[in-house]
Design a protein around this nucleic acid. Structure first.
Lengths: 344, 344
DNA sequence: CGGATTTTTGCAATCGTTTGCACAACCACC
DNA sequence: GGTGGTTGTGCAAACGATTGCAAAAATCCG
């Protein structure tokens, strides 16, 4: 047999010991003499032995060594820079713990749920990361019932949540943006948002409304389905051509803000002279927009890395109390906001 | 036992047949009567049975159902939009074939090679995708020797290559760019490039040089290490302030072109009045640059999807002749190029 | 130096699936 | 109703690792 060094058994044979001894020596189990342990470890290293993952996973029942991330195909849409950053952060965070990231792509929400079930049943992953949470998220409900380790990026309507989550403080950011613009003399505000019941929308809007409460500021809202650019543009155009158009517009995320910038230019509105615009996320194009977009940086990379850490901790200690982490954002002032126009 | 429906054996027991029969019925093997087959399939569906991947992989020796992509950490640098698009394309292409994508992150080239060896030895993946090839790529050499299925995005110096690759026709694009600018009256050209021996650099530069041969056009070259923005900016600045500065600059990729745009603005050079700039890749920010960047679109998403298809084909037919695919680029004319200045 | 104790090691079962081979059942034909 | 040929099914041995339990070896102690 030529499997010397490739398999446990082969390695054991070439050393004249049993497979059990080799296994214990390599995994640092007690009950192995220091001499044998060192001999085995040296031989394993020399032979370049790497345990077969499938075999290990099979016997231990867990330990595929993967963490899964299920992505809806149009979900991250053309938001590739976000996806790239998120994935890279996760990968970095996981590789510190010797875990690999596995990605599954599905066409829609229903397929996503099916895929999650499939992953759990086939034991293809030891844990899952859920992005883009909704208020009543069926994925969360199912995983909770299945008792499978997971962490969400974003909150749901559970309170307190019996699972781990990490979220960015959108409410705080929007309150901060309001205060800033208010201080610059703005009184008529606009909000460009989406229709989907994502929790990040909820929190940002609530943060804004809470900050506005008690002031004499007004709010016009433009919403559209997330991936319908036509309706989005129509809604924005309507908002900007209304009689009492806002002088300051907050956008749920940068993609919307960039659209506002384009439409403002098309309508002959000067930014920030006539109109202030503030986004959220600080995606790549924001810095290169005309004018460069003022926005909030949520450090996706770092958030993803933290998510990875939380999940790994959960997988190793299933019983630990849930971890909830709210990440503060950082305002990135660029050139798309300024004082309210004089004639207001 | 409560494993009815969760495992093959349990399913078999509840049906009163043997595990072998269930296995054959589900995997469509011949020699099973239609009646039993349908009964088994129905029961499996009803019970939501999903085969355990580890067990299957263990017995078949292959078939972990994963394809691996190893990424160097600073490798894709801040090029997250590229990474996101690439990963998404791969995922889409693979999921069509029931294969999942798995990502491993490593800090440097040496670790990457180690990781590849590790993946192959542990049978964690059935195939690998290699990005960012260099001319003499050690990963390729090793995988070739190991006889492990892989496909590269980009060529190496093998000719003809005894493996599958897919690449974008950078030579063609740069020749096209030269012809275009030449037709607009430009005679003094600049090239902003990097120092690393990536094959995409080689091909683009060769394409440009071949197109220039026999003309009276001149070429100034600015190079720097890929991720050293200081040296990059100094090199660009030197090129643009030289006595006979170029009137048209080709950039190896968009990131460099955006830097050229910034530096030109800083130096008071009008684009495209004084200087034409053309990039490559058509990344997100290119469309939002000032002025919007003329560039070449290589449709990363589609390329990645094609890569996935090539790899799956290779995994199922290891002996087939190597596939080589050169993807044509599409010029995206925007506002950063124009006729040569009059006083030249 | 013999027995008790502790250490070190090996045996064998197990995880869930696939698959070669043998066997049972059925049909048809002479 | 034997013989021969299909067909459909089950038995059992893998795949490569982990681990409870028992046996063997080493150590200790009086």
């Amino acid at each position: 047999m030529s499997d010397t060094g490739r398999t446990l058994k082969g390695l054991a044979r070439s050393l004249g010991v049993s497979a059990a001894t080799v296994s214990r020596a390599l995994s640092g189990h007690p009950g192995i003499s220091t001499g044998t342990r060192e001999k085995v470890q040296a031989a394993a290293r020399a032979a370049g032995y790497v345990p077969n993952r499938a075999a290990r996973a099979l016997v231990t029942g867990r330990g595929s060594g993967f963490v899964g991330l299920v992505l809806q195909d149009p979900g991250y849409g053309r938001e590739h820079s976000y996806l790239g950053e998120f994935v890279q952060g996760l990968g970095q965070g996981l590789s510190d713990h010797g875990v690999d990231l596995f990605l599954a792509f599905v066409p829609d929400a229903q397929a996503e749920l099916g895929m999650i079930r499939n992953i759990v049943s086939s034991r293809r992953a030891d844990g899952l990361i859920l992005g883009r949470t909704t208020e009543a998220d069926p994925r969360v409900a199912w995983l909770l019932e299945a008792g499978f380790p997971f962490v969400t990026h974003g909150r749901t309507d559970h309170d307190p949540a019996p699972f781990d989550w990490l979220d960015t403080d959108g409410a705080g950011a929007f309150a901060e943006a309001f205060a800033l613009l208010r201080g610059l003399g703005h009184r008529r505000f606009g909000l460009v948002s989406i229709e989907e019941p994502m929790t990040f929308r909820l929190h940002r809007v609530e943060g804004l409304q809470a900050a506005m409460a008690g002031t004499d500021a007004t709010l016009a809202v433009a919403t559209s389905p997330r991936y319908d650019t036509d309706r989005r543009d129509r809604a924005i155009r309507a908002m900007l051509t209304a009689p009492d158009r806002p002088t300051a517009v907050l956008c749920l995320f940068d993609g919307l803000a960039l659209a506002v910038l384009d439409i403002a230019a098309e309508l002959g509105l000067a930014v920030p002279g006539d109109l202030s615009v503030i986004g959220f996320d600080n995606i790549g194009p924001a810095a290169h927009a005309r004018p460069p977009l003022s926005t909030f940086d949520s450090d996706t990379l770092e958030a993803a890395r933290a998510l990875a850490g939380i999940l790994v901790a959960r997988m190793t200690a299933p019983g630990a109390p849930p971890v909830h982490r709210l990440i503060q954002t950082r305002f990135v002032p660029r050139a798309s906001h300024g004082p309210a126009p004089a004639n207001t």
